[in-house]
């Protein structure tokens, strides 16, 4: 099981690296906010991995909160970009 945890952690780390690359590089602010959305999703995934690995449920509230309000950032930026033209 530990091996699986390392594999999953590795895949998530690579995904995070790609997402951060786009967040740094992204030509427009919309690209960046999109990339940060993915970073947030990967953080959520990492929280689950942590819960499974250490057999606890402490992060559950965080997970629900992330899935509930994670979209507010991108919606705000999108509105802001549209209004300013």
């Amino acid at each position: 099981m530990t091996v699986v945890m390392y594999v999953v952690g590795g895949i998530l780390a690579v995904a995070l690296a790609f997402a951060l690359f786009r967040a740094v590089r992204g030509p427009s602010i919309l690209d960046r906010v999109l990339a940060l959305d993915v970073v947030l999703a990967i953080i959520g995934a990492a929280l689950v991995v942590n819960m499974v690995a250490n057999r606890h449920l402490d992060n559950l509230v965080l997970l629900v909160t992330i899935s509930l309000i994670g979209f507010i950032g991108s919606v705000t930026v999108a509105r802001f970009v549209t209004d300013r033209k």
């Binding site: 699986v4 594999v7 690579v14 995904a15 790609f18 786009r22 990339a35 999703a41």
Partner: peptide, 29 residues
Amino acid sequence: MIGGALMSLAAGIGLARFPDLLSRMHAAT
């Protein structure tokens, strides 16, 4: 868990490789 992690990887690779914002969005969200 590996399946879920691969989906995150798909998002990451798509973000890095797709040519414009809207196609990146498919991969990301």
